[in-house]
Structure formats: C-alpha cells, structure tokens
Design a protein around this nucleic acid. Sequence first.
DNA 1: ATGGCCTCCTGTATGC
DNA 2: TGCATACAGGAGGCCA
Length: 275
Amino acid sequence: MPELPEVEVVRRGLLNHLPGRTLTNLSTDGKKMRLPVPVKALKSLTGSRIIDIRRRAKYLLIEMDNGAVMVVHLGMTGILGLFPEGADIDPHDHIRWILDNGYELRFNDVRRFGSIRVVEPDQAQALEQTIFKANGPEPFSETFDGSYLYKKARKKQQPVKNFIMDGRVVAGVGNIYANESLFSAGISPVRKAGAISEKRYILLVEKIREVFTTAIECGGSTISDFLDASGTKGYFQIHFNVYGRRDLPCPICRTPIRHVKLGGRASFFCPACQR
DNA sequence: ATGGCCTCCTGTATGC
DNA sequence: TGCATACAGGAGGCCA
C-alpha cells in the first residue's frame, strides 16, 4: 500500500498523538511477518516513553526515551492506527501497544509483508550504516538532483521506471508515484535509463518532488485500503493521471493510456505525451 | 555486475 | 453458484 507519501502521512498523524506517551503493555498474535516479530525486545520497551517519530525511505522510526528505535515497514497492506483501548480487534491486528492515555497503537497487516525491528540504544546512531546501508538518498535531500540521477543511470539498460523504483537509487518511489511522476515529466517508463538526458532527469526530479508534495497534502492515495493513523482515507487517487487508467483518455491529449508490465509491475503511460 | 523473475501472504475481482 | 486464475501501494533473494 504505502509509498513515501503514505508513510509520511502516517508519521504526521502519529506525531500528533504519540510523543510523550509511555508504552504500558504489549500484545502480539504470534503471526510471522516478513521478519520474525521481536517480541522479547518489544516487551522490554514497556515502561519507556516515545519521544519522536521519523521516517527514512518507507520506514517509520519510532524513537524511545531509552535510546532504542522501533523500525517499522508497512509492506503492501500495513496500517499503524490509534484506537481506544479495548476497541474491537481485527483478525489482522498483529501487534498492539497499550498506551498510558487510554488508547492503543495497532499494527494491522492483512498480507504480513510488513516488518518491525527493534534497534537497541547502542546501535541507534548507526542506522545509515546498518539497516539503511543500501538505501539511496531521500527525494527531498540536496544530494538527490538531476545530475545525481543522470550519473547513476550511465550504462543502465533497464527501463527508467524500474530504475527510479530501485530503493538504492532513490528512496520512497513506488509503483504509483513512479508512473505519475514519469507522466508529469513526459518521459516514457519503458525508455532505457541510460538513454535519458541530464536535462530530462532534472525535470524528473522536480516532478517526483511535486507529485510527492501534492500527495502528502492530499493525505496519500487510497486504492483499496490505505488509512492514516486516525483511520482516514487519502484522496490523491482522484488526481491520478495514468495509474489504473488503462485505455482511458490521457488528461492532456485524449490518447488512450497504454498499459504494460515492467518488472512485473503494472505500468501506465500516454504514448503521445511520454517519449 | 546487471536485470529480470519469483516469493512471501490474504483478499478481491474477473472469467469460464 | 462454484471454482480457478490474476492481481494488488514492497522488497529481497536467486539465477542466467
């Protein structure tokens, strides 16, 4: 489900409620997720207080007052949501943190492609060298610019869409926003990454940032099940120009939107506007 | 080294 | 209605 904008929307929602809260109890359902759920380490955090929530790529970093960090990935269908303590439990609520204010934080994930890790205090300063060692720059950082992308793309034969969805190249660009930003930049997703000019990569960087910014303002995109921390749907999907619009007219030139598979992922583009 | 394919899992939509 | 198949916001492992 979530790409960078959705994860950022969840982060901002949680920021309104979690910092200052103490974890008073923990409950897990024993289901295996993408990584084994570190129940013991999670339990050891009860009694600790949440001080901040950050984001790196599509990961949420929940920072505790003892220096530990919970690193959460929502996978395809993960939801971090706040509920009144004792609210009805969904079969896919895998982890519940009871808070000191009558609420609980729940990690719900139908497909269980999500994950959670606990980084102990002595390792918390080294995340960039450990968990995020292979991750590319944040799309809003200064190191991510047209010249960076252009240099990184030299000799690359793969389609540019696969290239920008590679987390080692840039963090946070998933299938929806790869499609949408390539449309906005007028670049065909099937073009080889190594065959695109620096000038066009400069434009693409602008468009990725623009699309992300608007999507965050819209509360993310809800295709079927994305909800923010308070259970609210996003509405960026009404602004989709190409994603999921196979055979529908291009919003610019009315040419039917083409649909192809790239790297096993649904890809949509206007054959007239995108070259 | 590069790039493409498969897998993890469940729910839903589509087709025969 | 029933069943089989395809597909879905991710990402890491494997293989040629």
